[in-house]
């Protein structure tokens, strides 16, 4: 029986993805590195501040890892939480592991410490790019209940590659935020199918916002991670220019589309409604030639 990534917590994900017994945690719960700001507001704290970090291996390759815990404040980024991720990335610049793995599950900045959180997200973005510039690939995995939103949605796209499952969601402003600001006519956050067509894994795969899509199992994610590491990274001006062209073409081609389905139709899917029903292998196969991506 394969284990679900979606239904696992941060620690179970790390255990499920890394080689057995290879994980060594940095600043574990015993270290009691908690958020002082939550205490000030009389809010419950977590001994790991909602992110588990450390070192382990996948297929014997040295991996640094950070896993956000959606179960604690929706994985929101505060001062300590963010600094732990930055620490992992800066340590990667120093120690050159085979890759840094970021298991992201977050609504973005933790409002109780909003300024610290926003600056921390910015520091994470710069640290991701520093690791890449130092030749260490940074691979992001998104497949949890809370998705990856807010500034961390931007940070995710600063990484070398993103792996998602169909259940994963990736964006900047979450559906509730847009509905609150613009009304239910603009974006109905309770319409799960609409949300999925807007920020879900399959849509992100089809428009080239993620690099791989996998079924919701630890084995599948692990395979995809190894492939991403083997593929290496391309942090170059040339790659950025290519990305620029892709993003430019996307706006031109799909800028007037009203719904994800319109985009899929434009990509050559005769029956866009069928996409939701396809299993992962079937979908990936059918998507060949019907998605946009770099290279």
């Amino acid at each position: 029986m394969s284990r679900s990534y979606y239904e696992s917590n941060a620690r179970a994900r790390i255990a499920g993805l890394l080689d057995a017994n290879s994980f060594h945690e940095w600043l574990p719960a015993e270290a009691r590195v908690t958020s002082p700001h939550l205490a000030t507001l009389e809010q419950p704290a977590a001994f790991d501040d909602g992110v588990v970090i450390g070192q382990g291996s996948i297929a014997g390759k040295n991996i640094f890892i950070a896993a956000q815990e959606g179960g604690f404040m929706g994985g929101a980024v505060g001062e300590v939480h963010g600094a732990k991720i930055v620490g992992v990335l800066e340590r990667a610049v120093r120690d050159h592991p085979a890759a840094v793995l970021l298991l992201l599950e977050t609504g973005g900045v933790r409002l109780q410490e909003a300024n610290a959180g926003l600056i921390a997200v910015s520091e994470v973005m710069r640290a991701i790019l520093s690791a890449r510039a130092a030749g260490v690939p940074v691979v992001v995995v998104i497949g949890g209940q809370y998705g990856c939103f807010g500034g961390m949605g931007i940070a995710a796209r600063c990484a070398s590659a993103i792996i998602m499952s169909e259940e994963g969601r990736l964006g900047l402003s979450g559906p509730e935020v847009i509905e609150t600001a613009r009304g239910v006519e603009e974006y109905d956050a309770r319409d799960r199918a609409l949300v999925w067509r807007t920020v879900g894994g399959k849509h992100r795969y089809l428009i080239g916002e993620c690099d791989a899509i996998v079924p919701d199992s630890m084995e599948a994610f692990q395979q995809a991670i190894m492939t991403c590491i083997e593929n290496g990274d391309d942090w170059s001006l040339e790659a950025l220019k290519q990305e620029h062209q892709l993003l430019n073409e996307r706006v031109k081609r799909f800028g007037t589309c009203k719904d994800g389905r319109d985009i899929w139709r434009e990509l050559g899917w005769a029956d866009p409604i069928s996409i939701a029903m396809m299993d992962n292998d079937e979908f990936v196969k059918a998507a060949q030639g019907h998605r946009t991506k770099n290279n």
Binding site: R157, E186, R197, H203, V251, G255, C257, K258
Partner: peptide, 15 residues
């Protein structure tokens, strides 16, 4: 804050 910009991957453009 628009559905359309989210659908197009605004986070990717920002990144």
């Amino acid at each position: 804050l628009r559905h359309r910009d989210e659908m197009l991957g605004l986070n990717g453009y920002m990144a």
